[in-house]
Structure formats: C-alpha cells, structure tokens
Simulated assay, not measured.
Amino acid sequence: MAVVVNGVELSDADMEQELPLHGDAPNPMQRAMTALVLRRVLLDEARRLGLPSADEEAAIDALLASEVQVPTPDEASCRRHYQQYPQRFTVGELVEVDHILFQVTPRVPLEALRGLGEQTLAELLAEPALFAERARTLSNCPSGEVGGNLGQLSRGDTVPEFERVVFAMSPGSILPRLLETRFGLHIVRVARRVEGRLLPYEQVAEQIAAALHTASQDAAWRQYLQLLVGRARIEGIALEGADSPLVQ
C-alpha cells in the first residue's frame, strides 16, 4: 500500500535513498518510512509558514529554530544532576568481576535453566571456593575457560543491566540472586574494586549543561513532531511515535 502524506505519495526512489541510513534498526523498512513521513510533515509545515530555505535541511532547521523553544539549563539544574549521578563523573572506577553465564537459547527450557542456575548459586554461596571450577564446567561464556574471570571492568564496558549491579556490589561478595541480562542468567562475584575519583563540578559543568540541553531539545522536538503528525493527513502507515533522532 502506498504511503501518502498530506496528499503527496512517497516514492520508491525516496525509500531507496533513505533505507541505507537505517540498516542497524530492528526494522529498517519501517524506520526508513517513518523518517520519510516525518521529513515530509516538517517540510510541509515549513512551506506553510513561508520560511526561507536553501534546501530541505535548511528548511527543517529553520522550522525547528522558529517553532521549538528549548530552555537553557540553569546552574541549579546542572548541580542537581551532578549530585544525583556522581558515577557519571567519576574516573578510574574499576571492578574485577567473575561470572557464570547460563545462556538462554530456544533449545533449553527457561525454567530448567533457571533451576540449574539457582542450584549452582546456592552451592557457591555455601562454598565460594568452587566458583572457578563451576565456571569452567557450566558457563556458556568464553571466560569460563579462566574460571569465569572477566578482568577489570570500567563503566561502559558491559551492558547497563550488568553494570548497574556489579558496580553496586562489595568486593569479595557473590550476588545472592541470579542476574538477568539480555545474554541470559548470571552468577556474579566481585573480587576487587577501585573506587575512582569524582571530578570537581567546575570541571564537568559545561559537559552537564550540554547534556541537559540536548535532552531538553530532544523532548521538545519529539513533542512538536507529535503535534505535527496529529495534524497531518497520513495514509498507508501507522506511526507509533515521532522519534526526534530521525530529524537530522
């Protein structure tokens, strides 16, 4: 079915040009078509307002600059962010982690896998000295060959759901529950921890202000796009939401 925006049908040529830009998306075709629809909606609005532009990109930039007000973060907001998320501004923080991965696969029932993981965890909480041996025999991670040791990890080295837990653990401890991530179920032990150093606020103030401004800008753009999409006549596609990163 053809996709029509405000009476204009999007062409196959447009799609061929847009599609390569979204190859990493879970659904590249849907993402590319959504981007084309949003671009068309923005260009139609710029034209309706009579905004001058040299090309399409300039038209969109002029529209967003004219119609979207982005608040500038004040110092109080920046300091509050600094105090709320000190880990983001800490350097040199390290943890040495061992783990045993029970990988979730279609061939292994999750209930049985969880049962094995919980049984192994109970055994290791009772006898931590068996950790390396159980990692070598049970772990689905290459680190199992070295007793489950992942080495020294900095923030950003692992997936967020793993990082949040291991950086909150005390050295020498085994997490008393299975840790679930996108890779499966983990038994986790933190062998050593280096606390790191919190950078002074003055050293990161500009970085914080820029990050908060970007977040405010994204939210404002998303809200404006949703408003324009609600006004537009769009046929042939259901937009789940107007995602500001599509606006370049």
Rank of each mutant, 00 (worst) to 15 (best):
R222G: 15
T158Q: 11
A59P: 04
V247T: 03
D74M: 04
G92A: 03
V188P: 01
G147V: 11
E93Y: 05
Q69H: 10
V190Y: 00
L199Q: 14
C78Q: 14
P160V: 13
R47S: 15
F89I: 04
F89T: 06
V8H: 13
N27T: 05
L227R: 15
S11E: 13
G117S: 07
H213I: 05
N27I: 05
F89R: 08
L36R: 11
L175G: 10
I60F: 12
P71M: 10
L21T: 02
A35M: 03
N140E: 11
H186W: 03
G230M: 08
L49W: 12
P86R: 14
H213S: 11
A54F: 01
V146K: 14
A65C: 08
V5H: 09
S11M: 13
Q103F: 01
A2N: 12
L94P: 05
L64R: 15
M15A: 10
A35L: 03
W221Q: 15
A129R: 15
Q207W: 02
G117T: 09
V165M: 09
L228W: 00
S53F: 04
L239A: 06
Q69F: 02
L198M: 13
E206L: 05
R155I: 07
P106V: 00
N6H: 00
Q152H: 15
E111R: 03
T214H: 12
P176M: 10
T72D: 13
F162Q: 00
A76H: 12
G23A: 08
E202W: 02
L51M: 12
L38D: 08
W221V: 03
G148A: 15
A135R: 02
L21I: 00
R80P: 01
P160T: 00
D55N: 15
D74N: 15
L10Q: 08
S11T: 14
H22W: 14
E202M: 01
E206S: 09
R88M: 06
V5N: 01
A32P: 09
S173D: 06
Q87R: 11
A211P: 09
L43P: 03
A46W: 04
G115H: 13
Q152P: 02
P71Y: 12
I237C: 13
V247N: 11
I174S: 06
L63Q: 01
A220G: 07
V91K: 09
S139K: 09
Y85V: 00
L19P: 06
P128K: 10
L38T: 00
L42A: 07
G156H: 05
F162W: 11
V97F: 04
